[in-house]
Amino acid sequence: MSADKISSNETRHIAHLARLALSEAEIEDFTGQLAAILEHAKDIESLNLDDVAPTRHALPIKNVMRSDEVRKSVNREEVLRMAPETQANMFLVPKIIGED
């Protein structure tokens, strides 16, 4: 368990995982704020809950499934119209791997 102190480098790494191009000022702010929030969360970190099962759903339901029947799809134009950029009825994105 090492949610002790969070460094600005760690904040930078988290921002990268979350794909947020944070400014340096934001990195600094968030480093402090995350530390404070995590400090508050210490109260549960110290609880011994080894024998307690996690609750993932409020209702104990399982095996919810649907039958394998085709349903009408949405109108392609209505969807593509909302896209930042398209070409040949596909979503256009910038090159995926940049130059190093």
Binding site: M1, S2, V52, P54, T55
Partner: peptide, 30 residues
Amino acid sequence: VKRRIMLGTYALSAGYYDALYGKAQKVRTL
């Protein structure tokens, strides 16, 4: 929104899951 995305990404990231998200789910049971 950014703050919570950061916090949540941290809580799920390698090494912290059990101590943070996992623990929080157990508190729900409690």
